[in-house]
Amino acid sequence: MQGRNMTRWRDPKTDPRQEKKSNVITPQGHAKMKALADHLRRVRRPELSRKTGEAAAMGDRSENADYTYNKKALNQTIAKIAYLEKRLDELTIVDRLPADLERVYFAAFVTLEDEQGEEMEIRIVGPDETDNARRWISVDAPLARALLGKGLDDDVSVAAPGGETTYIITAIRYQSPEA
């Protein structure tokens, strides 16, 4: 039996999609999420509703590609708005710096040096604000979990697909929550 809700069965205990996300977010990430939800609610949804209505007025909906496309996009937008609103209610905004700025905590920018001497800077953020291009990793990621609580010049070992990798923390800095 085929259907849009039919998927392969996954064991909930081992399915990574079932893992609980941390409910922390930076003030900037919260503002960005809230702005996206507001844009979808005030701009995108009315626009898609209008387009769907116009396409429905053209006649037979079963063979109307505009109607089908716009209806699908409208349903996806409504689902995204519902998800964002629910998620925004669950989140805790971390809007203060930690007491010990010499250790790695949430929202830290951490410079790491690998075994080959190459440096990279990452930032530990909430799971809703991860960004690979900017090297912002989730607080739930294995590397972030290994870094939390560590200090300057500490060694950190993390299991990676190519084997275990060791990093040395060369710098820790924080951005003001108001920025």
Results as ranks from 00 to 15, higher is better:
Gln2Ser: 14
Gly3Tyr: 01
Met6Gly: 06
Arg8Ser: 11
Arg10Ala: 10
Pro12Tyr: 03
Lys13Cys: 09
Glu19Lys: 14
Glu19Asp: 13
Asn23Pro: 05
Asn23Ala: 11
Val24Gln: 14
Pro27Thr: 06
Gln28Glu: 07
Gln28Ile: 07
Gln28Gly: 04
Ala31His: 09
Met33Ser: 11
Ala35Asn: 11
Leu36Tyr: 06
Leu36Ala: 11
Ala37Pro: 09
Ala37Gln: 13
Leu40Thr: 03
Arg41Gly: 00
Arg42Cys: 09
Arg42Pro: 00
Val43His: 13
Arg44His: 13
Pro46Lys: 07
Pro46Asp: 07
Glu47Ser: 13
Arg50Asn: 14
Arg50Glu: 15
Lys51Val: 03
Gly53Cys: 03
Glu54Lys: 10
Ala56Thr: 06
Met58Phe: 01
Met58Leu: 14
Met58His: 09
Asp60Thr: 09
Arg61Thr: 11
Arg61Gly: 01
Ser62Arg: 13
Glu63His: 10
Ala65Met: 12
Ala65Phe: 10
Ala65Gln: 15
Asp66Ile: 05
Tyr67Met: 10
Tyr69His: 13
Tyr69Gln: 14
Tyr69Val: 12
Lys72Val: 07
Ala73Glu: 14
Thr77Lys: 09
Ile78Val: 15
Ile78Gln: 12
Ile78Trp: 04
Ala82Gly: 14
Ala82Asn: 15
Tyr83Arg: 10
Glu85Arg: 10
Lys86Ser: 14
Lys86Gly: 13
Arg87Gln: 10
Arg87Cys: 03
Ile93Glu: 04
Val94Ala: 06
Asp95His: 00
Asp95Asn: 08
Leu97Arg: 05
Pro98Gly: 05
Asp100Thr: 12
Asp100Gly: 02
Leu101Tyr: 06
Leu101Ala: 02
Phe106Arg: 03
Phe106Met: 08
Ala108Asp: 00
Thr111Lys: 11
Thr111Val: 04
Leu112Cys: 04
Leu112Trp: 03
Glu113Val: 04
Asp114Tyr: 08
Glu115Asn: 09
Gln116Ile: 03
Glu118Asp: 14
Ile122Met: 01
Ile124Asn: 04
Gly126Met: 06
Asp128Ser: 12
Glu129Thr: 05
Thr130Ser: 07
Asp131Tyr: 02
Asn132Met: 00
Asn132Tyr: 03
Arg134Phe: 00
Ile137Cys: 00
Ser138Pro: 06
Val139Cys: 11
Ala141Ile: 01
Pro142Glu: 08
Ala144His: 01
Arg145Gln: 15
Leu147Lys: 06
Lys150Pro: 04
Asp153Lys: 10
Asp154Ile: 08
Asp155Tyr: 11
Val156Lys: 01
Val158Asn: 02
Ala159Gln: 14
Ala159Lys: 12
Pro161Asn: 07
Glu164Arg: 00
Glu164Ile: 06
Glu164Asn: 03
Thr166Leu: 09
Thr170Pro: 02
Ile172Glu: 01
Ile172His: 01
Ser176Asn: 11
